[in-house]
Design a protein around this nucleic acid. Structure first.
Lengths: 196, 196
DNA sequence: GGACAAATATACTAAAAAGTATATTATGTG
DNA sequence: CACATAATATACTTTTTAGTATATTTGTCC
């Protein structure tokens, strides 16, 4: 069993995850987190060195949560095509997202890019491994004869992720999930074209 | 000719544009802008009511700058296909962007989404009109027989913008422009499939 | 080119945010 | 179940950032 301290720390991190995803790293302040957790400064600073330390661990958790969740969704499906479809379906509702505030990978990427080199590198890793897994999946599909060899796994994997991530932001800001439906449909039918 | 005050105000806004694009609205502070412009508080607050007022006008300018520039690029081309290609080529280098720090439309969208309703609405307008123009262009292409009627203008317009915007962020954070080349190529060839 | 208003600089105050020293309370182990 | 220590709360200080009152300079128009 986790000690009291470990549970409290975990609770702080989990409570902070949606706050960071909505407000961004430089948009959140300690008082926001204290208000949300109903804890006090003494307590919070007992678990984290400073705001930077807290931010880093919150982002770590956010990235882990979303990655695990996507992997789990993909894992469910049996065929390669099914797995790719499951990936696409994961974000069919860009308004009510798994972690409130959109996709934490993209959100963090945008902010970390020019400001937080350490966090930028973490996000880059997530994108790179995600890309690699998806591309690997597509390649496997080609190998086992599920897809035509004309499909470029690396390019199509990038296209899938880029368009979904961009689509989420656009839908959120425009306040409608509808374009996402069309996008997913289009990407699915694009993959269908390579199906054998 | 512009008065001194008008020129100074413009200078502040123009200097602030890349700062806001890199650091985000809540990441920039007045001192950053004073340092970049080498002006003083008295001067800055002579032109803007407060930080909120400044932020709003900076974002307005950013959105206008990028929109105008994209429109100009698209306008150059003669054929519909050429115009769509020009749109895609506009962001062929996601590292060195027109305004330093990536695409201000997407960057602003991510941050404004859950935090700045007024600015969120401005960004939504930009996306909506951009979408409409692109879809209109594609529809015109169908009408004049340049593209097949099987092309869904609204869906494809969204796909174009979403994938390019997502691609920019991913490339920037991974530190490579290469995947963007593949993405643009793929989108072009997708459109080619509908060419007559 | 001088007057006067507009523009800008200086030097401050106010507010918000981060961080800390110390007191209090709770946990879990002998 | 008591006690030692870990966990948390309180009440502060420090730092950062926004904002303002007033002085000084600089354009502009007669």
């Amino acid at each position: 069993m986790l000690s009291k301290a470990e549970r409290t720390k975990q609770f702080i991190l989990e409570t902070a995850v949606p706050l960071y995803n909505e407000k961004g790293i430089s948009g959140v302040n300690i008082d926001d987190i204290l208000a949300a957790t109903k804890l006090t400064k003494g307590c919070l600073y007992g678990h984290f060195e400073n705001k930077e330390d807290l931010s880093e661990q919150v982002i770590d958790l956010s990235l882990k949560m979303i990655s695990d969740r996507i992997r789990a969704a993909v894992y469910q499906a049996k065929t390669i095509k099914g797995k790719v479809f499951a990936f696409l379906d994961f974000y069919k509702d860009p308004i009510e997202t798994y972690i409130s505030g959109g996709c934490p990978i993209l959100n963090t990427a945008v902010e970390a890019d020019d400001n937080y080199p350490l966090i930028k590198e973490k996000v880059a890793k997530v994108f790179r491994s995600g890309q690699q897994e998806l591309a690997g999946l597509l390649q496997e599909g080609i190998n086992i004869g599920e897809f035509s060899g004309k499909l470029d796994p690396v390019v199509f994997a990038f296209k899938l992720v880029a368009s979904v991530e961009g689509g989420i932001v656009m839908c959120r800001v425009m306040g409608t999930a509808k374009p996402m439906q069309g996008l997913i449909k289009s990407l699915k039918s694009e993959l269908e074209q390579y199906s054998i």
